[in-house]
Amino acid sequence: MNPYLPIIIILGLGVALGLILSGFAHFLGPRHPTPAKEEIFECGVPTVASRERMSVKFYLTAILFILFDIETVFLFLWAKAFRSLAWFGIVEVAVFVLILVAGYLYVLKTGALEWD
């Protein structure tokens, strides 16, 4: 039997479950759209359809996330072969992590992670 079958089945069932739940709302509820209901909720204030720019800090957070995620992935790889690589592996990975720690300290120092 194809060993990847369970993942595919569960994925399919999960998506189907989500769609069914969404469908319940769409098809089973009464449908009387009024202008008031269709408006976006802003606590009674009339909606200002302005499109502001969001802060650029989200972008920076996402990029730093990618970079440290890559580091985490390499560390997982090292963890698997830790015992076979012994001290040699530790030194290698230590160099890797230290370079990244330098980057992290740079980020801290320039205050790029300040959130107001």
Partner: peptide, 26 residues
Amino acid sequence: EEAVPAMANKWFFHLGPVFSVFPAFL
């Protein structure tokens, strides 16, 4: 009743919850 906002992007509005459900089950 499900109140869909008028300007909402129909496809993603209906598909959004799906992305919350299947990772949890996996």
